[in-house]
Design a protein around this nucleic acid. Structure first.
Lengths: 105, 105
DNA sequence: CACTAACGTAAGTTACGCCTTACGGAAACC
DNA sequence: GGTTTCCGTAAGGCGTAACTTACGTTAGTG
């Protein structure tokens, strides 16, 4: 269940994909629309969207000949939770270490 | 100021680096210590730690011949804030779209 | 002062990810 | 039915990131 999200981190490792996702966060739009605002070709955008889709970060909604992509809020929420958990654990261990140091200098 | 964090996302794009960071979140430890638990060589770990350090995700603390690495809570917090902002914006736009649709079907 | 342990870095190889062009298919429009 | 638009995928080139081995350095240890 969490194996899915690990790919989300890998997906966000690419600058172009982060830019695409940022774009989709503003409003859903088509492939061509995205490609026009990026310095890469349309097929390249298609491939990035495929990766983002497999990572559970975007959703597709066919509309005529066009395919409207949008952010998958659920996938994004899962990512946020994972980062939160990680952050919490790091903070815990940090506090614990500080306490141990003050107890035994 | 935010240029820094963008590299953090790239840094977390690598599975080995995520594993290293997870390890450091449990407790700070040395390079050799990390390498022993990973399927890669010690110099490889060194290189990963360098990337994580430049991304502002880890800190180094020399201790004798060893170098103790630990999670940089500040860098991690910045990352969390960025994700939070992004998530908030996506959620806003989603709500807005739903409202627009219900108003004009 | 050797000797060892722990580490960073350089050099080199290799594998993989990103991008391109080219092609084929599905839906609207005439 | 022909044409156009929009899109996904295949094939291939290419840069680079991730790893390895080899070496040099620094700090403890006897």
């Amino acid at each position: 269940m969490a194996t899915y999200v690990d790919d989300a981190w890998t997906a966000l490792g690419d600058p172009s994909r982060r830019q695409i996702l940022r774009r989709l966060a503003e409003r859903p739009c088509s492939v061509t629309e995205i490609a026009e605002e990026l310095p890469i070709s349309r097929p390249a955008v298609s491939q990035h969207l495929r990766v983002l889709k497999e990572a559970g970060l975007v959703l597709v909604r066919p509309q005529g000949t066009r395919r409207i992509y949008e952010v998958d809020l659920q996938g994004l929420a899962t990512l946020r939770e994972e980062l939160d958990q990680f952050w919490g654990r790091a903070l815990e261990n940090f506090k614990r270490l500080v306490e141990e140091e003050t107890e035994q200098p």
